[in-house]
Amino acid sequence: MATLELEDVHRHFGGVKAVDGVDLVLERGELRALIGPNGCGKSTLFNLITGALRPTAGRIRLAGRDITGLPPHRIARAGIGRKFQVASVFDDLSVEDNLAIAAWTRGRRGQHLPLAALLTRLRLAERRATLAGELSHGERQWVEIGMMLAAGPSVLLLDEPTAGMTAAETAATVDLIRDIAATGDVTVLVIEHDVGFLERLDCAVTVMAKGRILRTGSFADMRADPEVRALYFGTAA
């Protein structure tokens, strides 16, 4: 059964069709990249899935349950985690508290959390007591990804997770995302513009244009597709 299913989803802002009849099915444990030029509707689609916006029409289901139009906190409770493009962490709290807040939503007791393992995985073991506001940009991005992992979602939406990262941090993030998907429990949908990142991620790619799904296929196929090349990669790619 599909974990996340979008059926003919529309979102219009007046006369502007930001999302115009999107059908999308993601299976459990699938890793998928979502690409497209700026303004094609990628972030609006994330907003619709996570409840920030209500669809003008269409249904969104999580593991068969209709979550269309639910508020963000109920959709998050249902199992959809979202990482924002700009790292959204609690600056006045320590790294450990940031992760603990996310873990509490699973009904776990903070002290029983395998936080140490998670912190090590995120390369933040030495920074557990540091305020999130004092971390570097890349570290803040990892803290937010760590919060998603601590919350234990069944679907993870990552909006440009490597924005502003160094090459080394980006490579480590690719490994982390692949590890998450490799568990087979979490479905991951990633918005990303970094072609190098997408190449290393080596997963199925869905291309959006003008609020619609244009193509879905492997990264190599998409890169070879003339229409996608013209639209997104540029003819020189």
């Binding site: 906190h73 998050a76 409770r77 924002f84 959204s88």
Partner: peptide, 14 residues
């Protein structure tokens, strides 16, 4: 503290 710092993030955690 989380509510004061970033209410939107808190909502998206559930």
């Amino acid at each position: 503290t989380a509510l004061r710092t970033h209410p939107q993030r808190l909502a998206y955690l559930g």
